[in-house]
């Protein structure tokens, strides 16, 4: 436990002494903010239009759902931005240790590989949670000036958190098999993208295969969260996917102990 905490602490420290974490967090929040502004302003324009029309026809203005028209799309966008940014957060975790030779310190210290992997996983996840927490400011704006439903917002964040565990788990894995940070980031991005577009590939194959592909697709499982639905099958999908990635990372480290 102590070793695990030491790794978490050390990782977080090194994230925040390098500019990378700041840049990634800042850009994530900025770009999310730009889209938030665009969605919201078009929503307001549309709401005005609807109100005017209602006045013209002397009817009740229909109630527009801000959750459906702004927040849901924003969550969809954030899941894509995370795909771009998280590999940059995880790429250095093991690749740099290998390159600098500090992995030699970790491997010869009385600390289990599971502690190392989970420590690094936790630290990256904390960075991601910080990124998500900062975007919550936008939701607070909506709550102050409107009355969005709270539960779909929370499920949306849950969905983003879960999708983040998958990105991070595979980010760590690819970082653990190379010394090159760029390769780690690109491989992570490529693999996740493949699972992302798997649903689209479904359109070109037979219905049975399509069903399988759609169920494997990362983004198909996210939609329900964005809509405000919690379905255990999606939670199980993400958690087992993330667990698989963490386990592969663990095996990749552990193999150094016996691979000749």
């Amino acid at each position: 436990m102590r070793g695990y905490l030491a790794i978490v602490q050390k990782e977080l420290k090194s994230y925040f002494v390098s500019p990378l974490a700041y840049v990634v967090i800042f850009l994530f929040v900025l770009i999310t903010g730009i889209f938030f502004y665009l969605y919201l302003s078009s929503f307001i324009r549309y709401a005005m239009q609807v109100a005017l029309q209602a006045q013209y026809y002397r009817s009740m203005a229909p109630k527009l759902n801000i959750n459906q028209m702004v927040i849901r799309y924003l969550f969809g966008n954030m899941s894509v931005f995370a795909l771009f940014w998280l590999p940059l957060i995880t790429m250095r975790s093991f690749a740099e240790e290998k390159k600098m030779g500090t992995i030699e310190l970790l491997f010869t210290s009385p600390i289990k590989n599971s502690q190392t992997v989970l420590g690094k996983f936790t630290a990256s996840l904390i960075i991601f949670v910080i990124m998500l927490a900062l975007t919550f400011i936008y939701m607070i704006f909506l709550m102050v000036y409107g009355n969005p439903e709270i539960p779909p917002i929370l499920t949306g964040y849950l969905g983003l958190f879960l999708i983040g565990t998958v990105y991070i788990a595979f980010g760590l894995f690819f970082s653990s098999i190379t010394e090159n940070q760029i390769i780690a980031a690109v491989a992570t991005f490529g693999m996740i993208l493949l699972f992302w577009v798997m649903g689209w590939i479904g359109n070109f194959v037979g219905p049975d295969t399509a069903e399988i592909l759609r169920n494997l697709s990362i983004i198909e499982h996210f939609d329900d969260f964005a809509k405000g639905v919690i379905d255990t099958k999606h939670i199980v999908y993400y958690l087992s996917f993330a667990f698989f990635g963490v386990f592969l990372t663990y095996l990749s480290l552990e193999s150094n102990r016996w691979r000749v």
Binding site: K10, S14, V17, S18, M100, I103, E104
Partner: peptide, 11 residues
Amino acid sequence: MPENPPLYHDM
């Protein structure tokens, strides 16, 4: 102590 000391340069 390995030949190249395993140091974290940012610490």
